[in-house]
Every structure is written in C-alpha cells, then in structure tokens.
Design a protein around this nucleic acid. Structure first.
Length: 784
DNA sequence: AACTGTGGCCGTGGAT
DNA sequence: ATCCACGGCCAC
C-alpha cells in the first residue's frame, strides 16, 4: 500500500531529467531531458496513445468494429472499463486524439440531436479530457525534473525596455538578456524605425535560440514582455521562434492572469513555446506573499530590495523616464536593465523552487504549476492520476446538496492593553484534523485524498529535517526547503478543496468540510478552557490559535509549560505549539490587534490597523501612537497626535501622505452609467483630474480637496517626488477629522472614555477638569 | 480554461 | 442624525 501511495504522489516512471514535454493531439510526444551528470540535453520522440474518460460508450458505438475492448486487435478506438462506482468509468484511447474526439462528437451529435462541437459541451459530468501533455504524464507516470535540482535547469532571463506601454504605438529599444551561464548583456536598436526594431527582435530570437534555455523567466513576463514582444513582432513581420520545435509564433493558453485576450476582454491568455517553460516570477512572488504576507509590494524592485537581492548601488529609473534617459545617458539604462535581469534570476531561484518541487509531483507542465491554483491545479491532477493508476473509475463533479458550510470559531475575551502576551497555535489545524479523525471526501472510494495528505505531511517533515541538516545556504538545503514549501502549499489547500462550492472540485464534500471545522471549533474551545483553568488571561482566539496574558512574574519556561500541558490534552497529530511571546498587546476588535515584541518591534494586524487603502499619514500616526502606548508612554501618544495634527494644519504633509490607494473596479463607461445614482470619490477624482480613460483593476491614489477630489501621480522612485510640483490642496479640515475619527479612535479601547477624550483633545479646547495626561493608565476590559 | 474556504471590520454613500 | 447594503480588505 505504501508504495502505491508514494506512486500517487511521485508518479512511478523513473525517467530522470525531463525539463520539458510537448505533445500534439495526434499523439506525437517530444521530451527534452537534461543529463544531470554532464549537463547535456537530449531530445526524445515518442508515440503515445491519447486517452480520455467517458461516462458511457454510446457515442462511440457508431464506429462498429472500429471500437473494441482493450487488448483486442487493431481497432481505431479501444476502451476499458474502470472499477468502482465512479461515473467516469470508460477509459478510451486512439492513436490520434483528434480521431478520438471527433468520433465522440459525431456520436454525441446523433444521440442528442444537436450539434456538439467540442468535448466540453458534453459537460464535465460526462467527459474528462486533459491537455495532451497531462494525458502523457498521467499515462506514463513520468514527472518533470526527476533527479534534478533547480540549478540543473538552464535558465535565461530577458527584459524589454520600451519607449512606452502601448504596443500599438511604442517600440522596443533595448533588451537585457542574462544567459544560463550568468552573463548579462543588453541588445539595443541600431538606428530608428521599423527596420531597426525588427532587427533587434531578430537578434533577441537568435540569442535565445543560441543559448537554448529550458526556462525563460522575467517579472511580469506574461503580463508585459511576451504580449508586447508578440505584438511588435507581428506588426513588423518578424517570425517569433522562441520554442525548440514547431512553427514560428507563440501559441496561447487561457489562464487566470496574463495578458488580456482581446480588447476590453476579461479573459486572460498566456503564451506557450514548445520545449521551453515560460516562467513569470510575479507568480512566485504572489504565491509566497499569500502565505507569508511580508512583502512591501509585488514589483521587482521592492521585492528584490526586501529579499536582499538588490545591490547597494542599484540603478533606479522611473518607468516613464526610461527612454528619455536612454537618449541622454544610455549607459545608465544599460546598468538599470542589466540589474533587472540579474534580480529576476535571483528572485526566480529564491522563490521559484516551490513550483519546481510541485512539478516533481503533479502531472502537469512546470509552467502551468507555476501559476496554478493549488486545489484544481495541483490536488486534482494528483487525484486523477491516482485513480487511473489504481484502475478506478473517477466520480464526476457534483453540485452541493444545499448544505451550508460554516467555518471557524472566533472569540474576543478582552479589549484594551495587556502585557506579557503569549500566542499558542495549532500547526496546520485542518489537515491535522483530517488526518486525526480520518475525514476525507465521501466519494473518494480509493482514499486517495487522505493518503496524499498523510504522505505529504510525512515527506514534508523529512524535507524539513534534511534542510536543517544541510549546510546553510547550500543548494541541498535550498532544495529541501523548496520541497517543504511546495508540500505545505498542497497540504494547506486540502481543506479548501473539500469545502469548495459550486461543484468546483471533483471530490468536494461539504459534509466532510463541516466535520473538519466542527472539530476545529471544539479544539479551539478546549484550548481556551484549559488555558484559562491554568490562571492566564485570555485575550483573543481565532480558528487555530489563542493570545493570552500571563501573570506578572512568570518566566518564559512557565509560559511554555502551560502551553505544553494543554498540548498534551489534544488528539494525537494535532500539535499545539508555543508560537511567540510579546511584551504587550492592544486588543481592539476581533481580528484587529497590535503587538509589541520584546525586541521593540510593532506588529499591526487587521484591517483597522493596516490596510492598503489607508492614508499613509494615518498609518504613520498609528505606528507611533501605538508604539508609545504599548510602552506605557501616554504623553507620547498625545504628542504623536499633536505632531500629526500640526503637520496637517501647516500643510507640511505631502499630498501623497493624505491620499488613499483605491482600486478602480468600474470601467469609465460603467461608472458613467451609475454616476447619477451613486457618486464615488475615486472616480470623481479621476474625472476631476481630467482622466477619462482607465481600466478596471487599476489602482490609483486619490484625495479630497475642499471642493472636489484629486489624483496623486505615483512615481516609482521616492526621491523623485518633487516638492515644488505638489499642490497640497487637500482638505485640512477633512483630514483632521479622519485623524481623530478614523485613526485615533483605534486607541479607544485602551482608555476610559474620559482619559481617551483628554489624550486626543484638540490643543485649543483642553478642559480645565481634564485628567493630567501623565496620570492616565491604559486599561484592559473583559468583553464577556 | 480557470476557479480552495468562512468570519469579520470598516468606509462609502444613498435611504430613511 | 441614523441606518443599512455593499464592496474592499484582511485574519485565519
């Protein structure tokens, strides 16, 4: 059993070194493999028998003797019935996938009496047809990258520098390229006009073909560089052969993020080049930030700086000035563009390892796993392969039966300021409960989901141990850490897979999901009861963790002791951990609190304390005020308030500091339709600034003036904000109110009402009877 | 072709 | 003045 389950996770075919797979619908497969020992690339051709799953054979009966059971002689289409109760039970194959699908479509058209033009028109209850590469990987049990490490890949990075953002009008004038050896250079236009740009594109293509990379990487590759390059190449009539085989020109696939498929189109496409994997480091950044939530932004420069990838003398040029700087000082743009590709290479290596590790498990192309959602993009392919390998029929998707799904428990025990804080939480609560109580999808007769979660957790522990044992900074350690991150991603989405609504996932089971969350609520309640019984003050508990304050005089060992005692009361596999200790906490509302660590770092949590749309001046004030508050410096809190208020009234704050970052979700046309019924400040600001064009999804900084609203132009570079150009025409009265009513009010729970009024009294309106600020003490109030 | 979940705070701007 | 529905953002 154990071996079979490992095969569900890793596949079974030992073929090493696959770096890319390309399969045509007619069953011709091309496999590129890199020999780890020599670095040599080998290309292999194979014939492969395309397959799909059907719920019935009816639509193939018209083939007569050209349809036969597997093992029979020479029929066009062969079939095999899989075991178990699943609806998708007929595995059908043919030498050419197109023969297979057109035979089915012909039969379905006859049977249903309407034209069925595509397999998906039959519905996912009736047919499962994977993309050709995935059919190949599932059928063979092969996976990408077996016995390879990330550094075995030949990776090339390129980055376009253009005269503007509009591919219909602007041109490419430079391309920075970093080849797999690590050497970076720039290609530049020689002269002007179409011929010069066309020549530059030809040189780029030649450069890529000569370097012959397995992987092409850039930040926002699919959002900018490839669509821009594709449009320019088409316009200039330059053949764009970025792949290893096949005709020139990029192919497309639809994806959740990428370039707009057409004008004003919500659908997104990504480009595909046979034999190479096109990797966008923005995907890795988003995936990383989803779990870590520690990045200041998602742009290349911000991420590179944050991760320590940027050199100290990193050349910076604001996007819109690049071409202008190039004409004046081309060497500067060369340094800038070269730094870009070098940072991308570092970023891909640092954060891309997880997708690489996923490709060693799931039967999909590396580039698809790099941007796939974990549930339908990773778990589902693993389950499909497990069922086929076991010869079991797959259940079809099923809509929910109407049962509601409820989530986690949440308790707020006290608000205000507390000291000596401990956080205890359960590691991976939901997957642990699934394992501990054997909660899996009812329709998963094979038990593949729980088996996969078991295996992933076990392998992940092993990977973590191996990582710890390997030398710091070594490629080996890096590989184990990446594998651990990939496994964490999959394990943590197992519950989401189960709870997914709308018939989204094949094995979704709301009853099982409800069992998981019910056990979760029980576990959290038990933790809280048992902790309280041991003399601590509970503050807040959410889902899988609890904050509490310990009595004065407790040592860290005593803190850890109480957590360990409670941990011993939980079911096996459900591990309560000591997650951290803090000097002080401001508890505001559920899911909204601030923590001061013992080394003086302030952590803000919740939308009341940190929100991407909050005005910077308000967040700065909050950081200062809460920092002082948690150190017991109440006069310092008042001082932070007065200083901010004063700066505001003197208009010392740049307009950006009072502006709010908002996402425009309505197109100009859409807004104009609803404008009369409902006026909204962000759009009014755009219109007032004379901007009548924007795209839904765009984020802009807006602010309020006395009479109307304005837009702050974002610059890439902070030094670039030229004081003289800032109108500072913001509405001081409005922002003084915002400071008091929106930001200062976040500290309301910290004081009695009288003290709060005194701390945040307007300097001109101090009451004679107000309490002396020096004597004000923060409070903690039970909420019961 | 893509698509994991619930709980919760809070600001906006019209309705009452 | 107060209420409320809604959308956005965030904690888990």
């Amino acid at each position: 059993m154990s071996r079979a389950e490992d095969e569900w996770l890793w596949g079974w075919d030992p073929t090493p070194g696959i770096v890319s797979v390309w399969v045509e619908a007619d069953g011709r497969a091309t496999i590129w493999r890199r020999i780890a020992a020599t670095g040599e690339l080998v290309r292999e051709e194979a014939r492969f028998r395309p397959w799909l799953l059907l719920d019935r054979l009816d639509d193939l009966r018209h083939l007569g003797s050209e349809l036969s059971q597997e093992g029979g002689a020479g029929a066009l289409v062969t079939w095999r019935e899989l075991e178990g109760p699943g609806a998708l039970r007929y595995l059908v194959r043919a030498a050419d996938g197109k023969t297979l699908s057109s035979a089915i479509l012909q039969g379905a058209t006859q049977r249903l009496g309407r034209r069925v033009g595509a397999l998906r028109d039959l519905g996912k209850e009736a047919v499962l047809a994977l993309p050709p590469e995935e059919q190949y990987l599932v059928a063979t049990g092969r996976n990408y990258f077996r016995d390879l490490t990330f550094d075995h890949l030949r990776r090339l990075q390129f980055d376009l520098e253009t005269t503007g953002l509009d591919a219909g009008r602007d041109r490419i004038f430079m391309v920075a390229v970093r080849d797999p050896s690590g050497a970076a250079e720039t290609l530049e236009v020689e002269g002007e006009g179409d011929a010069a740009e066309a020549d530059l594109i030809r040189r780029l293509v030649a450069r890529i073909q000569a370097a012959d990379p397995d992987v092409i990487e850039n930040h926002n590759l699919h959002g900018f560089d490839l669509p821009f390059l594709d449009r320019r190449a088409r316009r200039l009539g330059v053949p764009l052969s970025l792949g290893r085989i096949g005709p020139a020109g990029l192919r497309q696939r639809t994806a959740r993020r990428g370039a707009a498929a057409g004008l004003d189109d919500r659908r997104k496409v990504r480009y595909v080049a046979p034999g190479r994997e096109l990797i966008d480091t923005l995907d890795a950044v988003l995936r990383h930030d989803f779990s870590e939530r520690d990045l200041p932004g998602h742009g290349l420069k911000a991420v590179a700086r944050h991760l320590g990838l940027a050199g100290p003398d990193r050349e910076q040029i604001p996007g819109r000035q690049i071409y202008e700087v190039y004409r004046r000082d081309p060497a500067r743009v060369r340094r800038y563009a070269t730094a870009d590709v070098e940072e991308v290479a570092g970023l891909a290596r640092l954060l891309g390892g997880a997708a690489f590790a996923l490709a060693q498990m799931a039967p999909r192309r590396y580039e698809r796993l790099a941007d796939a959602g974990a549930a339908t993009g990773v778990i589902d392919p693993l389950l499909v392969r497990a069922y086929l390998h076991a010869g079991m029929a797959l259940p079809a998707h099923q809509p929910g039966d109407g049962t509601e799904h409820s989530g986690a428990a949440l308790h707020l025990f006290a608000t205000g300021v507390a000291h000596r804080i401990v956080k205890a939480d359960v590691a991976s609560l939901y997957p642990s409960l699934m394992r501990a109580f054997r909660i899996g999808p009812a329709r998963d007769r094979l038990g593949a989901m729980l088996a996969l979660v078991d295996r992933l957790v076990e392998w992940r522990l092993a990977a973590k141990a191996s990582a710890r044992a390997a030398p710091r900074g070594s490629a080996e350690r890096f590989a184990h850490e990446a594998r651990s991150a990939a496994m964490k991603l999959v394990v943590n989405s197992a519950y989401g897979y189960l709870a997914a609504g709308g018939g989204l996932t094949r094995f979704a089971d709301v009853h099982a999901a409800n069992k998981v969350t019910r056990r979760g609520r029980e576990t959290l309640d038990l933790m809280c009861r048992e902790l309280a019984a041991r003399g601590v003050t509970l503050l807040e508990a959410d889902t899988d963790g609890v904050y509490f304050a310990v009595p004065e005089g407790w040592s860290e060992d005593e803190e850890r002791g109480v957590v360990a005692e409670v941990a011993s009361l939980l079911p096996p596999l459900v591990q309560l951990e000591f997650d951290g200790r803090y000097a002080a906490m401001l508890s505001h509302e559920p899911k909204n609190y601030a923590l001061l660590s013992y080394d003086d770092k302030l952590l803000l949590r919740g939308v009341a304390f940190r929100s991407s749309r909050a005005e910077p001046f308000g967040e700065n004030f909050l950081r200062r005020a809460i920092g002082r508050l948690l150190k017991g410096d109440v006069p310092g809190v008042r001082d932070a308030y007065l200083v901010t208020l004063d700066a505001l009234r003197r208009r010392e704050l740049p307009t950006r500091d009072v502006s709010s970052l908002v996402r425009l979700t309505k197109s100009p046309e859409h807004y104009l339709e609803t404008r009369e019924a409902r006026r909204e400040l962000p759009y009014e600001a755009m219109l007032a600034a004379g901007r009548r064009q924007w795209s839904a999804g765009e984020r802009v900084r807006v602010y309020r003036t006395r009479t109307s609203a304005g837009v702050v132009e974002e610059t890439d570079d902070d030094e670039d904000a030229i004081a003289g150009e800032d109108p500072r025409d913001y509405d001081v009265g409005h922002y003084a109110r915002v400071l008091r009513e929106i930001f200062a009010s976040r500290l309301e729970r910290a004081f009695t009402p009288e003290d709060f009024a005194a701390v945040f009294a307007d300097p001109g309106q101090m009451s004679l009877f107000a309490p002396a600020i020096e004597n004000v003490r923060p409070v903690l109030k039970r909420t019961d």
